[in-house]
């Protein structure tokens, strides 16, 4: 077992883990942050996307021990049911989720994109979200929601 210390959503955390524990499991298990969802566990579905030192990554393709000393942001950092973030509010307004399984990954991917990339066209938004699978919405409403936030920044 190894002691892992990291900052998650602004708070210091410390917990023990085997070297083989995935960051996704570390967040959900020892840290109890179950907002990050686990789908395919081989980097295809995007449900477990988080921000690691400010950049979006698949938390199923990162060992917890590799994130030792790093800063993590998860979907829990965005907003609360009573005070949704602008992106979450746009997802609600545009019906961009149905079952909600892909939503944390969609939100964190879009957060990285909106912070760091000049998303202007629908094509750019679609390409940005192409690494995140959704089986309910057909994507159109998710694209609409991200476009709505992208437009407010322009």
């Amino acid at each position: 077992m190894t002691t892992i210390r990291l900052t998650v959503n602004g708070e210091q955390h410390e917990a023990e883990a085997e070297p083989r524990m995935l960051l996704s499991d570390f967040l959900r298990g020892p840290l109890g942050l179950t907002g990050t969802h686990v789908g395919c566990e081989h980097g295809v579905c995007g449900a477990c996307t988080i921000l690691l030192d400010g950049a979006s990554v698949r938390s199923c393709l990162c060992l917890a021990v590799q994130a030792d000393g790093c800063t993590v942001e998860t979907v829990e950092a965005l907003g609360t049911p009573a005070a949704l973030s602008p992106l979450q509010e746009a997802f609600r307004a545009h019906h961009a989720l149905q079952c909600g399984f892909c939503t944390p990954g969609m939100l964190m991917t879009a957060t990285d994109m909106l912070r760091n990339h000049p998303l202007t066209t629908e094509e750019e938004v679609r390409e940005a979200l192409s690494g995140n699978l959704c089986r309910c919405t057909g994507y159109q409403h998710i694209v609409d929601a991200v476009m709505a936030v992208a437009r407010t920044r322009a």
């Binding site: 980097g43 995007g46 698949r58 991917t109 940005a128």
Partner: peptide, 9 residues
């Protein structure tokens, strides 16, 4: 190369 989250790492 894959998607942004993969290219970041």
């Amino acid at each position: 190369v894959a998607h942004l989250a993969i290219r970041n790492r």
